[in-house]
């Protein structure tokens, strides 16, 4: 399907959803505003959050706080996860040593780290970043590890035959060779970061979208709940799009003109 037609279909879908929202909540009153806010309620809540603030901070502050936590947790998970994945993918010894630990940690839901994280780092940002890190870290490691293993053996042998020194080998062979899978991991990591953020901010936060959502629930304020949810959706999508742009640049060699990939 051509791009213009696809985006036309997408816009239509969103328009239908918006129309259904208007009809169900505002016009027909089939859904009571106490359960799901009308568009007008949501708009008012959004304006309030932006202008006067909600929960001791304006919407911008909440958003920036959440973006900061996601960015730091996500970047920390890449900084640790990708090198660890490279090591586990490359070295059978490293894999043998680290895999059992990893297998043990992997099934623990990220949110189960919250109590320990608070015990270690208190109620500040540190604990929340740590929880996001734990969630985002796993897909980074696993996909990077798989990515290294997908590099064809002759390609690695060619690099050795050409006398490639160790760090250049890592930089110019291992990392680019694994990069399609690394980016798959990063996309999952980013998604995990946003998922975990809201839960992490439910506990002892002073700002942030999760904090806002929690407060709105206590205040029985559906309009504000929806504002928080929409913000998570928008900024989640924006950061995903940003990562996608980085990925397209980094993997330009895969899909340049005339390519089969």
């Amino acid at each position: 399907m051509p791009l213009s037609r696809r985006s036309a279909v997408g816009v239509t879908t969103l328009a239908v959803v918006a129309l259904a929202w208007v009809l169900l909540t505002g016009v027909s009153g089939l859904v009571s505003p106490g359960r799901f806010p009308t568009p007008a309620d949501t708009w008012a809540a959004g304006i309030q959050a932006m202008m006067r603030g909600y929960g001791d901070a304006t919407l911008v502050v909440h958003v920036l706080q959440s973006l900061k936590l996601v960015a730091l947790g996500f970047l920390a998970s890449i900084a640790v996860g990708v090198p660890l994945g490279l090591l586990m993918g490359w070295s059978k010894t490293a894999e043998a040593v680290l895999n059992p630990v990893f297998m043990l940690l992997r099934p623990i839901p990220p949110l189960a780290w919250i109590p320990l994280a608070i015990l270690w780092l208190g109620l500040g940002d540190g604990a929340k970043i740590l929880v996001i890190f734990f969630a985002a870290f796993v897909p980074s490691v696993i996909n990077t590890q798989v990515g290294v293993k997908t590099i064809e053996r002759p390609v690695i042998e060619a690099a050795r035959m050409l006398g490639t020194p160790r760090w250049r080998f890592v930089r110019e062979v291992l990392v680019p060779g694994a990069s399609p899978m690394i980016f798959t991991g990063l996309r999952l990591s980013l998604q995990a970061s946003w998922t975990t953020l809201v839960a992490a901010e439910l506990v002892g936060a002073l700002a942030g979208l999760g904090h806002m959502l929690n407060l709105a629930q206590q205040d029985l304020y559906p309009g504000m709940i929806l504002v928080g949810m929409v913000c998570v959706a928008i900024f989640g999508a924006l950061t995903t799009a940003l990562l996608g742009a980085v990925e397209r640049r980094a993997l330009a060699w895969k899909r340049t003109r005339g390519g089969a990939a």
Partner: peptide, 25 residues
């Protein structure tokens, strides 16, 4: 120098970069 049956070029490097790597090394 080895020439492999499966070519074993670096897919992420251009023709020039592929040929140049050994000289850089």
């Amino acid at each position: 120098a080895v020439v492999f049956q499966q070519f074993a070029l670096f897919p992420w490097k251009t023709v020039t970069e592929n040929i140049e790597l050994g000289l850089r090394n």
